[in-house]
């Protein structure tokens, strides 16, 4: 027995998992598909045959991917980012989980930026005082340097879009661990940015260093993971 809603759902799925389609574009394609389906039914085809013919006319996701990818590449980086964000959250079925992931991801991006931004500070502190580098010197550089680098790092991260949706428990755990570390990094970064406390102490120094070193390392690891998940996604669609 042919069920139009089920058939539509199956047809939509590869588009929703594909990263080049906005929700609006999928809705638009679906309206076209329904128009073609209605036309084929009125031409006398059975429901299931009419749907197959309509799908053949409009094309499957694999047929349209190249055209939409070209359009996606032409978009401004912000548009590409929003699209990618939507693509990633689509993997999560639970609405609460989806919101949680969106919050977590926005936050992780921000902290990754701060982590990268802290690198020049760390190099500066270590070079100035190799034994007591974790005691932040009260100079203009920590604040100015970090602020400037944050701007550049965030711009780079948003453009490169390194974060990706990894599936599986291990990867979720990985992201969660990163978020916790990132939280520490964020607090420390903000603390030092606004107070430039010369007596930060070794504890805060260690956390700060963790954020500065581990943040970019995880970031690079995720870039590598992005390539892998791209492969996974294309295999899932095939």
């Amino acid at each position: 027995m042919f069920e139009l809603d089920n058939a539509l759902h199956s047809w939509r799925q590869p588009f929703q998992l594909g990263k080049y389609y906005s929700r609006s574009a999928i809705d638009e394609l679906e309206t076209h598909l329904l128009d073609a389906y209605s036309e084929e039914v009125s031409n006398g085809l059975a429901d299931s045959e009419a749907f197959k013919e309509a799908v053949r006319r409009i094309g499957r996701e694999s047929d349209l991917r190249d055209e939409f990818r070209r359009e996606w590449r032409d978009k401004y980086w912000l548009g590409r980012y929003v699209n990618r964000f939507r693509w990633e959250t689509n993997w999560i079925q639970n609405p609460a989980g989806r919101i949680g992931f969106m919050v977590l991801r926005t936050y992780s991006l921000l902290v990754a930026g701060l982590g990268v931004a802290g690198l020049p500070d760390l190099v500066y502190f270590v070079s100035k005082s190799p034994t007591n580098w974790y005691i932040m010197p009260d100079t203009w550089f920590p604040f100015f340097g970090r602020t400037m680098m944050t701007v550049f790092a965030l711009a780079a991260i948003f453009n490169l879009m390194p974060f990706t949706q990894w599936r599986g428990f291990r990867n979720e755990l990985f992201r969660l661990s990163y978020a916790q570390l990132a939280l520490c990094g964020l607090i420390i970064n903000i603390y030092f940015a606004f107070t430039a406390d010369p007596n930060g102490g070794i504890g805060t120094g260690i956390v700060f260093t963790s954020a500065v070193i581990v943040g970019p390392v995880l970031w690079m690891a995720q870039m590598y993971g992005r390539r892998r998940s791209k492969l996974d996604a294309s295999l899932a669609i095939a």
């Binding site: 638009e28 394609l29 309206t31 076209h32 055209e67 939409f68 070209r70 359009e71 032409d74």
Partner: peptide, 29 residues
């Protein structure tokens, strides 16, 4: 989109056939 494609087919006596789904990236552009 659907109406545009129908119009093109009608005016060209089916001589010009666009890939229906591929029209949309062009419209978005």
């Amino acid at each position: 989109g659907y109406e545009i494609i129908k119009k093109v087919q009608e005016l060209s006596d089916d001589e010009i056939k666009w890939a229906e789904g591929a029209l949309y990236p062009m419209l978005h552009r």
